[in-house]
Structures are given as C-alpha cells and as structure tokens.
C-alpha cells in the first residue's frame, strides 16, 4: 500500500515531541481512497498524538502530512474541515446548549458562504444555503437513527448516542477523510456491533476514507481494509488485518500490555 500514487493521505516521517518526551518517533504510512485504515497500539503508543497531528491540532516536530498531494501539516486548524478532513473527539466535544439537529447543522459550516449581512436580511443566498443544510441534516439524522432525538438538547442524550451525533456532525460536510478517535470507547457489546454496521453504511453512502484509532481490536480487525500498528511511537506493522495480527511485534506488544495490566 505505501508509496501508492493514488493515496489520499500521506504521512511522512512524523516526529512529535512534547518537551523531552518523544510521543511519535518517525512514522510514515498512507491511507488510500475509500479505504478504512485502523490505527492500533497499546496505551501511550502515540495514536492520539498522531491523530491530532493529522487533524491539524498539533504541529509535527518533523516530517509532513499531505492530503491529495497538498501539504496540510502547516495549515491552521480551521482549514482542515474545508479541505475535507472531518473528525470526532476521543472525549465528546459537542455544542452543549444546542439540540441534536443544531449540532449536526454546525458541521455544515464550511459549506456556507453567505455573510452576516445576508443572514440578518435573510437574503436568498443565505436561505438557500440554510435549506440545503437542513435537507442534508435530515438525511443524516435518518441514516444514524437520530430523528427521534432531533429537537432534544444534545446534553440530554445517553453517551453512545452523543457519539453518533458527533459522527453525524462530522459527516454532514461530506469529508474525504474521516478521523475517528476511539469511536467505540465507552460503548457496550451491542453498541459496538451497531457501530460496525454503521461503518459499512457510511462507506456505502459516502465516498470517503476513514482513519480509525481504536483500542477495540475486534472492531478494528472487522472493519479495516488495512491496519497500522504503533508501539512506543514507532510503526511496528502495516498491512491487512490478518497480516498485522500475525506480526510477532504486535503480538508481543499486546501480550506485554496484558502482562502489564495483570
């Protein structure tokens, strides 16, 4: 896969240091178009650090990241969504005073052009945009089974449903690349199964790639086309789920973690 000319996302020699700590020590990999790429690794492996780098929230100390050949690792955060990178957060980051529908609509911000004056005067440009966004929000709420909660303040929803709202909010702008940090975190068995279903639905309905950071091995192996494994900030495996599962370094990293936890 790596070196693929058609890759959507190219991560090259990324180093991330926090003071003296090197969280990520020179990692490269690609995510292809319409590919689901799992990023796994034991606690502290550097997954979230790398994720935040790709989503523009951290700057790499070294190396570069490009989307469709355009270097993105030096752009401000708020440009990412416009370039086609949507994300969710490991811990929920919803707009708490808003309803579910309003949260999803907030994700469509980049698709609007109308300015303050057009909005205040309800000019045609502004109302047309609003109608289009409403229409897409409605379809997404349906796809994610959120319609019955649409007008409820988002803070009143159970945790698992709030995660779905985040997903809808990231999807409404039709990203080319969706970054998900531990979407299964805090979900029960049934909910994880539903999530796996949902990934397939999303893939069917949207033409996008997903980079999935996840602890839940079972889920990652089930939905990913390819998997990248990290340990201590280094890449230890990169291949199909079966290949990665069979890599000795991966086995020992996870066995090590289990021994540590025991």
């Amino acid at each position: 896969m790596s070196g693929n000319a058609a890759a959507l996302l190219e991560v090259r020699d990324i180093v991330i240091r926090f003071g003296g700590v090197t969280a990520v020590g020179g990692v490269s990999f690609d995510v292809g178009r319409h590919q689901i790429c799992g990023l796994i690794g034991p606690n502290g492996a550097g997954k979230t650090s790398l994720f935040n780098c790709i989503s523009g929230f951290y700057r790499p100390s070294e190396g570069q990241i490009s989307l469709e050949g355009q270097k993105i690792s030096d752009l401000p955060r708020h440009r990412m969504m416009g370039l086609g990178i949507g994300r969710t957060f490991q811990n929920l980051a919803l707009f708490r005073s808003m309803t579910v529908r309003q949260n999803v609509l907030a994700g469509a911000h980049c698709q609007g052009r109308a300015g303050f004056l057009a909005a205040a005067l309800r000019l045609a440009s502004s109302t047309r945009e609003a109608r289009e966004a409403e229409e897409r929000a409605r379809a997404l709420l349906a796809l994610l089974d959120l319609e019955q909660f649409a007008e409820i303040p988002v803070a009143g929803l159970p945790f698992g449903w709030q995660k779905r709202v985040e997903l809808a909010r990231a999807l409404i702008s039709r990203p080319k690349l969706l970054l998900l940090d531990e979407p299964a975190g805090g979900l029960n068995h049934g909910e994880v199964d539903a999530l796996a279903e949902l990934f397939h639905d999303i893939r069917r309905n949207f033409e996008l790639s997903i980079l999935l950071v996840e602890h839940h091995m079972n889920l990652v192996m089930r939905v990913s086309d390819k998997v990248v494994a990290l340990n201590f900030g280094k890449k230890i495996a990169d291949g199909t789920p079966a290949e990665v599962r069979a890599t000795p370094e991966v086995i020992s990293a996870y066995l090590g973690e289990q021994a540590h936890a025991a």
Partner: peptide, 9 residues
C-alpha cells in the same frame, strides 16, 4: 466548545 468549533472549520 471552541476546539470543536475549529474542527468544524
């Protein structure tokens, strides 16, 4: 949520 707002562009 300022951080999430930035992620929304």
């Amino acid at each position: 949520h300022a951080l999430a707002a930035e992620a929304m562009g």
